[in-house]
Design a protein around this nucleic acid. Structure first.
Lengths: 202, 202
DNA sequence: GTCTATACGGCGATAGAC
DNA sequence: GTCTATCGCCGTATAGAC
């Protein structure tokens, strides 16, 4: 049996849900307090402001979800296997939390104001080891020479964007939630194949 | 010499700029009025409410940008050439208005409430002719059989997502605005190549 | 730590004079 | 059509009792 949440945690969790669901701007502190089952004043007792609360939540959310991805990217797995694992893990992660993409992107849109968040997001993009690997394999002639920045952007796009347009895809194809999940599951094979294909020597 | 804008148009244009730049929620009607150089009350004289104004802007924005894309998709161009043209036109369009992706996606995120906008967005996704073409060419053995929904999602992802993470890409690669534009220009060749590759028979 | 009560400013929207 | 003035509401934040 889980330990009862303390007040701070209740606020944190309620706010996380609401921020993901409705976006930060459309979530009021009163709403957070109500959802957490506590009083409005406690919001400002634990976190000085809504901004502060948001900073804490965002940083934690990105950190929690990025660590495994970075570990794979920095590992010394063989290139094709690394791509497969990265895509699998990333898609699994987003499947569990499909709102994450829209959330991060909404923050990215106003990043000039948000130093804390920008730093957190940048950690998702630590690709030095992977970049070197792509260049090395290209030099060795094992793969087609490719621009690592383009390749990484291709990879992120194919992984993340479908979640951002989830509603559109579901609407157009009359997908149920379950069918959308099946669609996403198919991408776990399709996307690595496509990426590896683009590296193939001809 | 352009005709002087009337008040309605001034409001419309100012609001369009601000909505794209800051997002709807973070734009106040007072700000729109100031930017348009008119009084706050005129906002509600011409458009009954902020919601109304937004509906008008969004619909016009999507319509204006989608017509050419749909024409290409519905044309009887040969498949590979159609893909090339579609990607070119789409990327050119987004290059001219890089904020469009984030804007549309922020609306998509709360689409359950927004019937008007959802309909407009759906028009971007009218792919019947293209779907048939993909299936036909697959049957004829000219290309690999592919799932049209996946293919179209791949295409949209590779085209649009880089604009959504523009700040991240610029930050990580120390791109200037000009260098980012160069990066995007490279994708006009890279993306069609990748997509056509994925259709290649082996 | 948790509550009640409230100050304050900004918001969307409108009434009414011109 | 365009303005000034103002309404009622809501979100953020704090003061002070318990």
């Amino acid at each position: 049996m889980a330990k009862l949440k303390n007040t701070e945690q209740k606020i944190f969790d309620a706010a996380t849900d609401l921020f993901l669901e409705k976006g930060v701007d459309r979530t009021s502190v009163r709403e957070i307090a109500t959802r957490a089952g506590i009083n409005l004043a406690l919001m400002n007792y634990y976190f000085r402001s809504k901004e502060n609360l948001f900073d804490a939540i965002f940083t934690q959310l990105v950190k929690q979800n990025s660590e495994e991805l970075i570990r794979v990217l920095d590992s010394d797995l063989e290139l094709h296997e690394k791509i497969r694992q990265y895509v699998h893990i990333y898609i699994d992660m987003l499947s569990e939390n499909p709102l994450l993409v829209s959330f991060v992107m909404s923050i990215l849109h106003r990043s000039r104001e948000r130093i804390t968040e920008m730093k957190a997001i940048s950690s998702l993009y630590a690709t030095d080891q992977f970049t070197r690997q792509l260049i090395d394999e290209g030099k060795k002639g094992n793969i087609r020479r490719t621009n690592p920045t383009h390749f990484f952007v291709d990879m992120l796009s194919l992984i993340a964007f479908p979640f951002a347009i989830k509603m559109l895809v579901m609407d157009k194809n009359n997908f149920t939630e379950k069918e959308f999940q099946e669609f996403i599951k198919e991408r776990k094979e399709r996307v690595p194949e496509m990426l590896i294909d683009s590296l193939r020597l001809r």
